[in-house]
């Protein structure tokens, strides 16, 4: 192997090392430390000037206390579970909403498709925060939705949507919908229309042709879309904080509070490490799906 190739291969590894592995090791180290009233707010800190003895002492002070703490206070595991549940349910709702949209886009005339695609990704052009705040304006007790419903006379008391899990679901589904639509649309769009005709020719009704051909063939897109929604939603922090109020339990919020309200960096780091370990499973599954899809299309 020559130097140029070595360099080319080394770049992504150096990137990973610098931007993922090193920060992770720092977080891991903090998670094994103790809280302290100091800057930074934990001990021990590594002091290389003391030589070998001080390094040994440094490692001697690291322990798993914070991880044990996570198992003792039920707030943590309930937050993890609640995050998983919210992620699973909102992924499912996003799929239910996103699939028909993707299907409709794939069925529409060729000349409309770029426009429809634009409309799907258009929200990305505004700040995510502004869009979530806009939802507060819609869902609040004096918000547009309640005002409209009161005006039509369907309800006579404003609905309490803000600061409930429902608001969190609405926010998540709205925000993550494009991540579901785009991979499903990609698989549907490249599907040969003759396959549906062939299915009908062989005795399928429109509906059974959809079940037996379209749906199985769009499976890689469905799986990709579900992971693209599920994985980031588990760690979601902004949406539950702004829309869910204090009642919604999500691990991202717990993490934020440990860091900034309690200034307990070691526990916050332990929460983050566990979250990462939890996420590794779906991420690996997702990578496998992508790889399989790539192999199948070759």
């Amino acid at each position: 192997m020559n130097l140029r190739r070595l360099l080319l291969i080394a770049i992504p590894y150096l990137w990973l090392l610098g931007l993922f592995l090193v920060p992770f090791l720092i977080v891991l180290k903090i998670s094994l430390s103790d809280t302290a009233v100091a800057i930074p707010p934990y001990t021990p800190t590594l002091d290389l000037s003391g030589g070998w003895a001080s390094i040994k002492e440094f490692f001697g002070q690291l322990d798993f206390e914070n991880f044990i703490w996570l198992t003792q206070d039920e707030l943590y595991w309930r937050s993890y579970l609640s995050s998983l549940q919210i992620a699973a349910v909102s992924t499912f709702i996003t799929l239910l909403v996103g699939y028909p949209v993707a299907y409709g886009m794939a069925q529409s005339p060729d000349e409309w498709r770029p426009t429809l695609m634009m409309l799907v990704i258009l929200p990305f052009w505004t700040s995510f925060l502004i869009r979530v705040y806009a939802w507060i304006g819609i869902l609040a007790n004096e918000g547009f939705l309640n005002q409209f419903l009161l005006w039509t006379g369907i309800i006579d008391m404003p609905l309490q949507i803000m600061n409930t899990t429902t608001a969190v679901y609405i926010g998540i589904v709205y925000t993550y919908l494009p991540f579901m639509i785009l991979p499903i649309y990609a698989t549907l769009e490249k599907m040969d229309g003759a396959l549906i005709e062939a299915a009908e020719d062989l005795g399928c009704s429109r509906l059974s042709a959809f079940w037996l051909v379209t749906l199985p063939l769009s499976r890689p897109g469905i799986i990709a879309g579900c992971f693209l929604v599920f994985i980031p939603v588990i760690g979601e922090f902004v949406i539950p904080s702004l829309l869910g109020g204090s009642r919604t339990l999500m691990i991202g919020k717990v993490l934020w509070e440990e860091f900034f309200s309690n200034r307990d960096w070691p526990v916050a780091s332990a929460v983050a490490v566990v979250l990462l370990i939890l996420l590794i499973v779906p991420i690996v599954l997702f990578q496998r799906n992508q790889q399989r899809q790539q192999e199948a299309s070759q």
């Binding site: 040969d192 003759a194 396959l195 005709e197 062939a198 299915a199 009908e200 020719d201 062989l202 005795g203 399928c204 009704s205 051909v213």
Partner: peptide, 15 residues
């Protein structure tokens, strides 16, 4: 789907 006719497609259209 109700015709006594089957077609072999130009592109084969195998599933």
């Amino acid at each position: 789907n109700k015709r006594p006719v089957n077609m072999m497609f130009q592109s084969y259209a195998l599933f």
